[in-house]
Each structure stands twice: as structure tokens, then as C-alpha cells.
Write a protein that binds this DNA or RNA. Sequence first.
DNA 1: CAGAATCCGGTTCGATACTG
DNA 2: CAGTATCGAACCGGATTCTG
Lengths: 122, 122
Amino acid sequence: MAEPLDPDMFAGCPPVAAPVRIGDKWTAKIIRCLESGARRFTEIQAPLRGITPKVLTESLRAMERDGLLTRTPYEEIPPRVEYELTDLGRSLLEPMNAGCEWSRKHLAELMHARETWHAATP
Amino acid sequence: MAEPLDPDMFAGCPPVAAPVRIGDKWTAKIIRCLESGARRFTEIQAPLRGITPKVLTESLRAMERDGLLTRTPYEEIPPRVEYELTDLGRSLLEPMNAGCEWSRKHLAELMHARETWHAATP
DNA sequence: CAGAATCCGGTTCGATACTG
DNA sequence: CAGTATCGAACCGGATTCTG
């Protein structure tokens, strides 16, 4: 869990690449960020390319409310807050992996169908 | 495929019960409707409780565009159109089943966490 | 029967600026 | 560092009405 997150870890995952979605737009990626252990706010923010603090906070709060992760603030200056997956949150990795495997196998086919679509319409 | 669809087949699947989503709001349910064979527009519409023709058309067109199903109109009066899953569309059943299994196992836990949330905030 | 056309409201998401 | 506050745009999804 000490390893820093690769800022480009989601380079190959544009929104279009997710016909299988977990929760809202960011939930699945946040779970991936926490897969290898607890992380701080800015650590999670980095790979999520351009997510605003507001939206990240909203997503994290919703996930905390649903019991997917825990939020533990430390009374320090400067402040430090750590987010960590619960067992429930970790259990989502299973359907997530099924979705990822589907994308790896079939997404190219879907994208191809989508692109050749305009060829056959008035 | 001759069996009519149960109009209540999605009674236990409110939107809140789908932290794992396939495509848009209706895609997964439409796939379920077509799982056992080709269906007509109104056949699909019935179990989808209150979906408007506009939204159903949009969903079906998007799925056709993505190669998930085929649309075959018959030149009759009154008109008849049949929708049928492609192999690609059928392949989505695998991640869908993974998502359904997760819900069966863990959704109650998530809902419980969500409800007991307000007990611990100022 | 299987839709098309039009209008509309809510939620989601983001940009920007500010703070303990 | 880890947020909050405000504003606004975009994107579904839905209601209603009409038609070949």
C-alpha cells in the first residue's frame, strides 16, 4: 500500500469504455485506487484526471454512507485524512473484474459497430 | 421464446438495487427481456413498467447501434417489429449475472449502511 | 402497432473561488 | 492538505400529443 498510484492508471478507461458501470461515474475508479490499501484525498485525486474536489468529496461521502469505505481524519496540521475500503467495498471488485474482462474481450467489437453505424442510414 | 414475459419480472429491481449498472437505465432489463428469444416492441414495453415509447425507442436504437441487438421490421399492417439479441449482446449476460449475484449477496448490507447513516451526523 | 415530435424537470457533473 | 460554497451546463429520462 506504500506504492504511489500511477497518475496514468486510467489512461485506457474513457467513459465510453464502461458499458458496465459501478454506481456513479467515479465509484469504480476510486475502488481501484484503494485496492492496495488506504489512501489520502490528494492521492486519490491524482489519477482521476481533473476531478474537482467537490465531486470527489461527493463520491467519497456517498461511498462512506453506503458502507463501501471508511474515512478517518487525523487531528494534525496540516490535516490528513485516509480512506480505506471496507469488506463490502472490496466485495465489489468481483463484479468489477467481470465487467473489465468483458470490456477486454468485446469492447472493440462494440466500438466498431458504433462507428460503422452511420454508413447505413439516410 | 413463445412464453409471454411476466409483467412483474422486475418487481424486485428498483433503480436503487443496481449499484452495478449496464449501460443506461434500461439496457440490462431489455437484455433480460430478450434472453429467451426475439420480442416485439410492446412485449418488451410491458415488464418495463411505465417506460415511455420514446425512451424505449431511444434505448433500443442505441443498443442496435452498438451491435447488441438486431431490429427487423415486417412489412405488414398493423406493423410488426422484432428485436433479438446478437452474440455480442448475449455476451453481456456474463457480467450482468456477476452484478446480480453481488446484489443478492451484499445489497442488504449496503442498504442497511445507508439507512443507519443519519444516526451519526450533526 | 410501433413509433415520431415537442417540451420539460431533475440529477449529475464541472468550473471557479475561497477557507480552517 | 482537505475540503466548502456558489454557479452553471449537460445529460438523461419522462409527460404528452400525434401519426402511418
